[in-house]
Design a protein around this nucleic acid. Structure first.
Lengths: 323, 323
DNA sequence: TCCGGTTCCACAACCGGTTTCATATGCCCT
DNA sequence: AGGGCATATGAAACCGGTTGTGGAACCGGA
């Protein structure tokens, strides 16, 4: 099951066998075929440790997320995983809120165990991330930092469109339920909404709240007090909780109140419930980020869009009437 | 930064340096201290690839889950991750529904890239898992298979208690919303409920449905038709959807209908909503499973409880009155 | 003083790939 | 025919740890 076995069976040297698999253009077609056959009949698969040792790279990439509880990150992981496998790398998931010194320390140590990072870290400091990036290639997700490659879901842009639509429809007072606390993207969302609202429409901010059902439930009262006719929440779980509480209060959606969610991840989660939703294809965000990282690893240089910002499209299904 | 550097600084050979760190009892205390100091000042950390190559084990364990969309698995991953790190191993997450031949094939290939598995696979066949276990140590999660170590949440037992309570309270017709389709645990849950219900109480089965909010919403009508006075759903997301729809229909919970969820994962997710919930500490399930695996790896034998079944406690908060 | 037995350490041989460098072969062109 | 060059392959040196083997130093007992 080692390369030497394959080489022996094929009647060539280890060197040739190795090249046959990694740099096929360097070996004669006939030889290559023999090696491939030998590998197949022996069921050979490379010893990654040996390869890693010889090449000086680990064949491991790390996907760092602050939590697994927010459903925003799981599809990112899934997409990144898929891309990593396609690139024949193993991906490890590290869960790191990224706020304490100990965690930063762990991340730094992790840095010399892997070839690179796909990193969703809404809260850690830009300077820290930059110093991490000096040690290993890194692509940030949903976070733009000057000088670092990033992949973000262009929610702000879609929100602009959403708010413009609301204003055009006559809304003059909308609420934004923000969070999570201290999140970089949260600030971007708010600014986009405010900019689009302009002078003709007030924006009331509620929260920040955590991205869970209960948050939505708890917000209904507070929301009513704002007298807003439309509300934008930043996560679909909140929208669900809000819907529940509104139902209880007898508020019709979207009749009495327009509810919009900035991130509907499990596609169709909110479908049929009268909620306006921006479908973020987080799966693709993760995939894109990982592909970018793989490209960086193989070319050794920064990705093509020189300032490395890749946006992903948003789908904005229009609100449907409540059943 | 290599062991040779450390050894040189400490004035010993690589061999001694290595032993000083891995088998301290074999080296003189004074020497060991010198090595440790050298390692510290040089900021040495082992090259895992080199170690893996030399020792013949990868230092990698794989956590296999069928999906990341069901929030049941994320805390399992989290717990397992933590335990793996504590054991100085890297954990990779593999998402594999485990139903197609191609996936089984991938898992088999993965087997010779890692040292072992923590495997949540509600649907794949026992024979397949057994053959996988022949290649690498493996601990199953929430699934018992004859001869294989496993860690399961003892939901069935808690369900027995729940149903007994319902029967004692006078319920004569309860509904069980089952799923996911083809899940091993699903069968166990149903049997436990049915056994506890006995002759004096009917059990109506609905589903199977996927573990999402929409499932609950869609079930309300069907549920009303069964005329059950209590319903047990297998996932909290379903309970939330159900609550929403019931609110809409004007059904009071728990006044008109008792709603119970077999798996409330994010602790307190259902709190204050009048739902009876069994709090599964999935985090601990994952942690226990990984610890068991680590023990297997270091001792080379099956874990202590000879037939390797470890149960985790369930917390059963009593239902609270609806607000 | 000499001997058997520990204790502690160095030497060197691995682990299984990758890669450099050298050699051999065959081809084209003058 | 012969020099130059591209192409195909093999021998061997790595990569950075771990571990088996053997020798030196030191111990106590006779």
């Amino acid at each position: 099951m080692t390369l030497a076995d394959v080489a022996a069976l094929a009647g060539v040297s280890k060197a040739t066998a190795s090249r046959a698999m990694n740099q096929p253009q360097l070996v004669a077609p006939a030889t290559r075929r023999r090696v491939e056959e030998a590998a197949a009949t022996l069921g050979f698969s490379v010893n990654r440790a040996a390869r890693a040792l010889a090449k000086g790279s680990t064949g491991l990439v790390s996907i760092v997320v602050p939590t697994l509880e927010n459903t925003f990150f799981t599809p990112i992981i899934q997409g990144a995983q898929r891309a990593a496998e396609a690139g024949d790398l193993h991906a490890t998931v590290a869960v790191l809120p990224g706020e304490t010194e100990a965690e930063r320390e762990r991340l730094m140590r992790l840095a010399d165990q892997v070839d690179g990072f796909v990193l969703a870290s809404p809260r850690s400091s830009g300077t820290f991330l930059r110093s991490l990036a000096e040690r290993k290639p890194l692509v940030t997700v949903d976070r733009q930092i000057e000088g670092l490659p990033s992949v973000i879901a262009d929610t702000p842009k879609a929100l602009s469109g959403l708010v413009s639509g609301l204003v055009a429809a006559g809304h003059t007072r909308i609420a934004y339920v923000g969070g999570p606390e201290g999140s970089w993207m949260d600030g971007r969302r708010f600014r986009a909404i405010e900019a689009a609202a302009g002078d003709s429409c007030d924006v009331v901010v509620l929260g920040p709240v955590p991205p869970v059902f209960r948050s939505g439930v708890a917000l209904a009262r507070e929301l009513a007090a704002t007298r807003a006719t439309a509300v934008i929440v930043y996560a679909s779980a909140i929208a669900l909780g809000l819907l529940f509480a509104l139902e209880r209060e007898g508020v019709a959606v979207p009749g009495d109140l327009t509810v919009a969610s900035a991130d509907d991840l499990a596609v169709g989660l909110l479908e049929g419930l009268g909620v306006t939703a921006l479908h973020v294809d987080a799966d693709r965000v993760g995939e894109t980020a990982m592909s970018t990282l793989l490209a960086m690893l193989s070319t050794g240089s920064a990705p093509a869009p020189l300032h490395q910002r890749v946006a992903v499209p948003l789908h904005w299904p229009h609100a449907e009437p409540a059943p």
